[in-house]
Design a protein around this nucleic acid. Structure first.
Lengths: 268, 268
DNA sequence: TGAATAGTGTCTATCAGACATTATGTC
DNA sequence: GACATAATGTCTGATAGACACTATTCA
């Protein structure tokens, strides 16, 4: 970060009065996506206070200075907000908490006029890819918090312009699966190739016909998955061979991409 | 947009005082990228006023309400800022001004502590892909404005954290060429396949060895280019066959992607 | 044994990469 | 003709998609 040293600048700064201007507020909102019981879901909270008291929206809130007077980084604010609503604490010692496995990415910033009846508000939206998390707890300022199937959430009239943010989040998530290895973020630390395939099917909402092809692609991609060397304990009750376990191998890019049918249709 | 109707909400809003909180400011900054004389360049301006008076940075400024009291949309603010520094007016009647061909995309939002010595500032950065534009003019608050080769700009110590924004812009631009048809945004309305290939080479900073392959890919991609049906007037003085002219065909996606060598190396 | 799930082998049409060839222009 | 640029043709190795087959488990 660059900092001014000129003495003129110091005089200017001493005389600078930020309250002269029409105030603007900045919020950080989080679209936390996960898969719960095989359903693509998003974390929604119900507002306790006006505006939109009693209505559902994405968790979020104004950024404000901490005890030291400094504002937090945007990503830090987003992580804190998510921790507040999920009841999970982000462990600074990098312990493997459930929240530690959540992938936070900046989604987009929404700043059109009329978004908030109080004043002009610019919202920095974050996208969280999460493995199956525990039941959320209502944080301060919220009546309740709930993992909600995205198809259901899209039908709800959310507060502010959160329907637009949610739509962008879903679109981005579906796209990210195509050319990154982030599908693993929806799974626990150890998973099978079948689990991974199901992540794609659940989030895209379409079957993946290629069984062998999907496996080949996953194995051929550098740093996508790594064999653990153990088998799953039995799941389900309908029989079937026990599957090999894998864990995410830290890679990011998945190229050439695995395209969803929707994308294939779009490119003709 | 959703709006509260509850009478309790109206009372709450009447009593709401936005000046109670620590003020935050929001800026919109634009990384305008273009190709000038075969060189990948970015628009920089030199600040007239503190902080960082006399130093170079990306064009940008605080968002503030217009005459009607309403704040503009973020993208509108970015377009206005760019128009100010380039001397081009964005024609609302959609006339084919040079600025009309500029593609504006939101890049990312930067909001860490200590970005601005005056107060906490959150910057929404926009990425502009532009065809060769005229010499810029210094807008209000700037001493001068200049198209600067990106390799040179990366070496300059820019004001605020604009080096980080510029780096993100360059990275995004290089990536966008891989899987979108946005390379055409760097070219005039009519161009040749050779021109298009040169855009890739200039922005990626590496030669594309495939001549036939590149052509095939471009032609096979739906809505990438469309044959105009005319040939170029002679250019250069070294001879050679006259090329067919094409124009952008309105498509967005370029899949499977054309990968740069850098990306290929990254995926092993 | 049959059904269910996991994983491998193989064939083929397609395509990216490489390179040769043809076409059209200036000097 | 020598050279430069544009455009097309053709060969080959890799691979996505499709499908058949093997492997392991439970009822």
């Amino acid at each position: 970060m660059n900092h001014p040293t000129d003495p003129n600048e110091k005089a200017f700064l001493a005389a600078y009065d930020p309250t002269r201007y029409t105030p603007v507020a900045v919020t950080v909102d989080v679209a936390a996506l996960t898969i719960r019981d095989g359903v693509f879901s998003v974390l929604l909270v119900r507002r306790a206070n006006p505006p939109f008291a009693g209505e559902w929206c994405l968790p979020g809130g104004f950024i404000k200075p901490g005890p030291g007077g400094d504002f937090p980084d945007l990503a830090t604010a987003a992580a804190a907000r998510l921790a507040l609503e999920t009841g999970l604490t982000a462990d600074p010692d990098d312990a493997p908490t459930a929240l530690g496995r959540v992938q936070l990415r900046q989604l987009a910033t929404f700043g059109g006029p009329g978004r908030d009846p109080r004043m002009h508000v610019v919202s920095v939206a974050y996208l969280a890819f999460a493995p199956d998390l525990p039941e959320p707890v209502a944080g301060p300022g919220t009546l309740e918090a709930a993992w909600t199937p995205v198809v259901e959430a899209e039908g709800v009239d959310l507060a502010f312009d959160h329907n637009a943010i949610l739509a962008a989040a879903i679109k981005r998530a579906r796209g990210k699966l195509e050319y990154t290895t982030m599908a693993t973020a929806f799974l626990p630390a150890e998973f099978t190739i079948g689990d991974l395939k199901r992540v794609y099917e659940i989030i895209w909402g379409e079957p993946i016909r290629l069984t062998a092809g999907f496996r080949r692609k996953v194995h051929a991609t550098k740093n996508f998955v790594e064999r653990v060397g153990a088998l799953t304990a039995r799941r389900g009750t309908k029989g079937g061979r026990t599957a090999e376990l894998y864990h995410a191998a830290g890679g990011e890019l998945l190229l050439p991409p695995i395209l969803s049918q929707a994308t294939k249709d779009a490119i003709g």
